[in-house]
């Protein structure tokens, strides 16, 4: 079993993601630098952490989506390797086209850091099977560009195919249909704005994020 955390210049949740993975799986992930053109051999899970890759310049996630390592992540995703993008990682995944839609500026125009109540919409994926469908969980958000948007046809399609993984119970950022996290069609790529790596242990005040990693590692490793 081997995990990889992709590190871009400006990533700032990379260490938190690594701590979460190590806390749940017992094994520290490999930290992979954005200029690398290969993943470590035998990687079973890839995490793209939050932060401000390349300073969010141009558009959040846009530059990271064109970095050398992303080409390799895309190949791995297409082979079926689970890929989790959190916050800026979600923005990168939409910019690469691995997930549909885009993350726009929050409706309030402000950066927002708070706890978010989420409904688990799909508890069948490799990432979400540790939850019950329809269950309410609490995971913190901290973002400026978390307002998920895409056109109505795509929204209908991803809703219909169970690609909506999590939905906000309150309107936090203006996201279409309250979408907080989505899966790709195959279910092995998850992008989400809330930070499960910040809800891992007692010190975080809630451990709902831990179950995502526990469920994932149970399936993957």
């Amino acid at each position: 079993m081997k995990s990889a955390v992709i590190v871009f210049p400006g990533s700032n949740c990379d260490r938190d993601m690594a701590s979460a993975i190590e806390s749940v799986s017992g094994r520290a992930p490999e930290m992979v630098w954005h200029r690398d053109s290969d993943l470590p051999a035998g990687v079973d899970f890839i995490a793209i952490p939050g932060g401000f890759s390349y300073g969010d310049y141009l558009r959040s996630g846009a530059m990271a989506a064109r970095s050398p390592i992303i080409a390799v992540v895309r190949e791995a995703a297409e082979r079926g390797t689970p890929v989790l993008g959190v916050c800026n990682g979600f923005q990168i995944l939409t910019e690469t086209g691995l997930l549909p839609g885009a993350l726009m500026r929050n409706k309030s125009m402000h950066f927002t850091c708070r706890d978010a109540a989420l409904r688990v919409e799909n508890a069948r994926s490799v990432f979400t099977h540790g939850y019950d469908e329809g269950e309410t969980i609490h995971v913190p958000v901290a973002h400026h560009d978390g307002n998920y948007q895409t056109d109505a046809d795509v929204l209908d399609r991803i809703e219909g195919e169970g690609q909506v993984a999590f939905r906000y119970l309150d309107d936090i950022n203006g996201s279409a249909r309250g979408i907080a996290g989505i899966l790709n069609a195959k279910g092995n790529v998850l992008g989400m704005m809330p930070h499960p790596e910040r809800a891992i242990e007692k010190a975080h005040g809630n451990m709902d994020g831990r179950r995502l990693f526990e469920g994932l590692f149970e399936k993957v490793f």
Binding site: C13, S19, A20, C113, R114, A142, H195, R198, A203, G205
Partner: peptide, 25 residues
């Protein structure tokens, strides 16, 4: 004010803004 600040990055914030003092592990 404080909702516009990321008070949790680092995953060590035990007491967030709004209390008497912040507590950071």
């Amino acid at each position: 004010i404080w909702q516009q600040y990321d008070s949790q990055v680092g995953a060590n914030t035990v007491q967030k803004p709004g209390g008497d003092a912040a507590v950071v592990r």
